[in-house]
């Protein structure tokens, strides 16, 4: 499933979408950036509640296909512009982390 196809399901809204055709292979859930750095795989969708600019660096370095901000977390403008500049897809949803993971897991 691509990031764009995930958005078309209606559960996840695009926040930053520079690479809509990235394929999602598996997912990772976590907020501790070092932990995510070491464990998220390339092409994973990464679900988190962290939204500072370091999230974009970690997403770039791990090469995840998208960051999914759960629990209604949003990005501030500065972080959004970094995400666009670095080509990082960011989606958001109102669902709590667990429900977001369950929802995603049922689709990919």
């Amino acid at each position: 499933m691509t990031v764009n196809e995930l958005i078309s399901t209606g559960y996840f809204k695009p926040v930053s979408l520079p690479s809509p055709n990235r394929e999602i292979v598996g997912a990772y859930v976590g907020d501790l950036l070092s932990w995510v750095m070491g464990r998220a795989e390339a092409d994973n969708a990464w679900i988190t509640i962290m939204s500072n600019v370091n999230v974009i660096a970690v997403a770039t370095l791990t090469d995840v296909s998208c960051v999914i901000l759960a629990e209604g977390v949003s990005l501030d403008g500065e972080v959004l512009s970094v995400a666009l500049e670095k080509g990082v897809n960011v989606l958001s949803c109102e669902l709590p982390l667990y429900e977001a993971a369950i929802k995603l897991g049922g689709m990919i």
């Binding site: 950036l33 070092s34 750095m37």
Partner: peptide, 16 residues
Amino acid sequence: SLGFGAGMGLPNMRKY
């Protein structure tokens, strides 16, 4: 609060 300080930095560096 920024998502760091989990005590994983140096261990990750060694691991990788």
